[in-house]
Design a protein around this nucleic acid. Structure first.
Lengths: 276, 276
DNA sequence: TTGCTCCTCACGTCACGTGAGGTGGC
DNA sequence: TTGCTCCTCACGTCACGTGAGGTGGC
């Protein structure tokens, strides 16, 4: 028989842990003195303690350890628990590898430039949205080419929505796709989120933008004339972090006051892990 | 200006998180209605929220995120924090890889044998200990050869300690090393832990066993005549898990009652990661 | 008598999730 | 009036670490 201190030393655990395992019924002492409350453990209990430690080290919770040791799970269930644990560990390691990559990218940025300037790019999911929209064609992706096309689209869309008695339910969303007309030409979609159900009878289209599972996003502050630099930052980040662009990109006009240099726009570019 | 629900949707976080960030001062709303307590956020705050999310995703705690964003850390400190984070992530991934290896070993054991029978081997550190000891030579490592040598050693050691008025402070510890006398011959050390300071004037040796950083241990229950099977289990586990033995091994006699089949012994084999 | 070990509460950790119970504007 | 969103507590999570305050045997 060992007192709690010696038993803890033998097992390589803390006294507090043994008291905790007693409290939750995972490892009850072989004997407890009724007067003093002193706990005593015997040598065979070291085997149970060892099993507890080993299962805990695999990453099981104490409740799981208890049901495994008390034979409350069948071999099949245990098999399933181990496979789940394997999957969790693999996922965790993948997430940590990705985290590590981003930490290292920031270390490189600090070491080469003395600060972190790409820190504003955020990877996140984008929820689906239903838009009322008008479209037109611009000559290229350049900010200079888009601006004169998109502004009248929004003015007209606003008028038509008002005429139809519909109120937008969120900030304007624009998106782009290559137009068939020439190599450079772009179809510009100017949209406003609505709760409307059908396009029938309206003089604008209703489209559902799908969710984006994984989008690299950047908050652009200032006039849209200067947006090209922000897109370059985004593109640089995407390449740096081992992603590739996935077709879609959107602009969400969070704030568009009269003073154009006070605009706040979220740029969203769908990305996927690079094939390798 | 956005209410808390819209702002949460834009940032891809929960409303509860925004309230929490407000509570700890990490992201205070741009405006709070004095009557209703309603929080309002503006678009530029989305940038701060994005930075919070990005830094949190690197694995920083919210307090660290706060001091980074509020410019309370210099570039050098930030550099140090990132390097620490990198080291932590590397350690975590190494630990997870090791865990994953052990989970997979158990899956293989279940799939090939229908149960887990090597589950009693535990990897742990062993604390240093000071022993009073007597030694002798046995013909080989076989249990049959060790037994007749070690028993009289312990009887004699017990007598001499008693004569010297010294009480052991823990269970007996034995260890072995090749004897120079022949290929097979083994020097047997029979030791008892003591608090004594010097060996001067005693008719036994005082030795300090060093700590073992990493030992594969197994609880052997039963007579020492049957210990060979337990050592084989240990050896199998060590190989299976990519370790190699590192010279030392010890036996700790946790319980040695008169009935020899009721003995409980901890076998400790020092191991190191396999060179590869 | 002084140390040492043991005991039982009980708070703190970390970043929220999840009700409970209630209010204000469409 | 019914929903919807917002609000403020406050408990729960997980496995202990860390005192506080006190006791019993050498």
């Amino acid at each position: 028989m060992f007192n709690i201190g010696d038993f803890a030393r033998l097992g390589g655990v803390s006294v507090r842990m043994l008291r905790h395992y007693d409290a939750i019924g995972l490892l009850r002492p072989a004997h407890v003195d009724p007067d003093s409350g002193y706990r005593s453990y015997d040598a065979p209990q070291l085997q149970r303690l060892n099993r507890v430690i080993a299962l805990k080290e695999l990453g099981f919770k104490l409740q799981q350890v208890q049901s495994i040791l008390d034979d409350e799970v069948s071999v099949e269930e245990l098999h399933g628990m181990l496979r789940l644990r394997r999957a969790q560990l693999e996922a965790q390691m993948a997430a940590d590898a990705s985290r590590l990559g981003r930490v290292e990218a920031r270390l490189r940025a600090i070491e080469s430039e003395g600060h972190m300037n790409t820190q504003d790019v955020v990877l996140k999911g984008v929820t689906p949205v239903r838009l009322a929209e008008l479209t037109d064609v611009a000559a290229s992706y350049e900010a200079d080419a888009i601006g004169p096309v998109i502004r009248p689209l929004y003015e007209e869309l606003g008028r038509r929505l008002e005429a139809a008695g519909i109120t937008p339910v969120g900030p304007p969303v624009a998106y782009y796709e290559p137009s068939g007309e020439s190599n450079e030409a772009v179809t510009v979609h100017a949209g406003l989120p609505v709760d409307e159900n059908g396009a029938a009878g309206h003089d604008f289209a209703i489209v559902d933008l799908p969710p984006i599972e994984s989008a690299a996003t950047l908050l652009h502050r200032g006039a849209m004339d200067d947006v090209d630099g922000s897109y370059q930052t985004l593109a640089h980040w995407i390449e740096e972090h081992g992603y590739r662009t996935d077709g879609f990109h959107r602009e969400v006009y969070l704030e568009c006051p009269a003073a154009r240099e006070d605009w706040v726009t979220e740029l969203q570019v769908a990305v996927a892990p690079e094939r390798s």
